[in-house]
Write a protein that binds this DNA or RNA. Structure first.
Lengths: 214, 214
DNA sequence: ACCTGAACACCGTTCAAGT
DNA sequence: ACCTGAACACCGTTCAAGT
């Protein structure tokens, strides 16, 4: 079903992915889709998950750098591989931008990037800013991303933390450090303005450096 | 009419901006809109133009730096001002992302940035890469942007060039140099892969520098 | 447990018709 | 020159009903 939805979008863009057409393309005709999915938003969430998982499959096939080796080269490889997948699904960035809740596969993807950066000698703090700075380049979409802490509204945040540590150890480590440094910060909440300026300054400084090198 | 459309989107997001609702909100009721606009796409193009023009109005009120002064500070100011406007219209990035043809106001905005960079000592070539590198941060949306050379399909490209030089002198200068360096390049066409990697490397290098400074 | 059909409210758009 | 009304094709979604 998700595979069929992706095919439809590949052929005619996001707006040709319609419940009726999807049902038709599955020979099963009509609105039986609503048995498997609550509504179209849930369908779109599934498609988003599916396409980011396709990225993860490609990225996971890339070897990790040996121990403390060149993190930059490894990150570059992964990001360019992600871009390649996205170029085959040009509708995906627009879809991801409209999701209100982050696909789990996105957490997995960033957890992998975070691992590279940690192994490369980054503090969690700098790595955190770094993920924001990469922003749109990391996954083909921009914007202030998502509100994390979404896939579990459990008030038992300790249990949530443990569950998360299992799936996404580096993301969990990062969050724990943020909470440790600033106990008042809402779990996973980021100061968008600060992060925007951090990323902006990296680009501006980099350009200025190139300019004065001439 | 455009103002009313912006209000509708501000209140209920892009999907609540509907031809029927817009007509209603204009007391003029019904589909008389189609006298003023060919279809909804044209309406959306108009809204995009309108909102970027709002950015330009704000940005133009910022003083230019004196002569060859700090381009970086000036660019930073403008970009943060643009972001402020965009935060008031959270639907705008999504809208801009779905435009197939660049609003004229976008050309105007980038022409202004280009002027700052040229005055700051940038070559057209480096400034060109720089605009790509800023990407989503410059106007709140990402992606490989638009196909320029759109608002005039005239085969008389000399006349087009002249017209453009009047409105956007720096953009025109940049294009002229690109054509001069590589006469085969289609007017305004960019190698997206190259530009993506350029911007990516700036961020990666910047992060690596911050890492090794610790 | 899984699918279907008819129905509803809401789209964008056309077109012949009004002033 | 500008607006309107009825109509059409197409949405997402509900719900009672089938197997």
């Amino acid at each position: 079903m998700l595979r069929a939805a992706v095919s439809l979008a590949d052929e005619g863009g996001l707006k040709s992915l319609t419940m009726r057409r999807l049902a038709e393309s599955l020979d099963a005709e009509a609105m039986s889709l609503y048995y498997h999915v609550a509504n179209k938003e849930e369908l779109l969430d599934g498609v988003a998950e599916f396409v980011v998982q396709e990225i993860n499959d490609v990225v996971d096939r890339i070897d990790l750098p040996s121990a403390g080796a060149d993190w930059k080269k490894a990150a570059r490889q992964r990001i360019l591989a992600a871009r390649e997948v996205l170029l085959r699904h040009p509708w995906a960035p627009e879809l991801l931008q409209t999701r209100t809740t982050a696909p789990v596969a996105v957490a997995k993807y960033f957890d992998g990037l975070l691992r590279l950066m940690r192994d490369g000698g980054f503090s969690y703090d700098l790595a955190h800013h770094g993920l924001h700075a990469l922003g749109s380049r990391a996954l083909g979409f921009s914007q202030e991303l998502f509100n994390p802490g979404d896939d579990a509204n459990s008030d038992d945040s300790a249990a949530m933390m443990e569950n998360m540590a299992g799936q996404f150890p580096y993301l969990a480590g990062m969050l724990m450090e943020i909470v440790h440094d600033d106990p008042d910060s809402t779990l996973g909440w980021c100061d968008d303005q600060t992060e925007f300026e951090f990323g902006l300054d990296i680009v501006l400084d980099g350009l200025d450096r190139l300019r004065s090198e001439r």
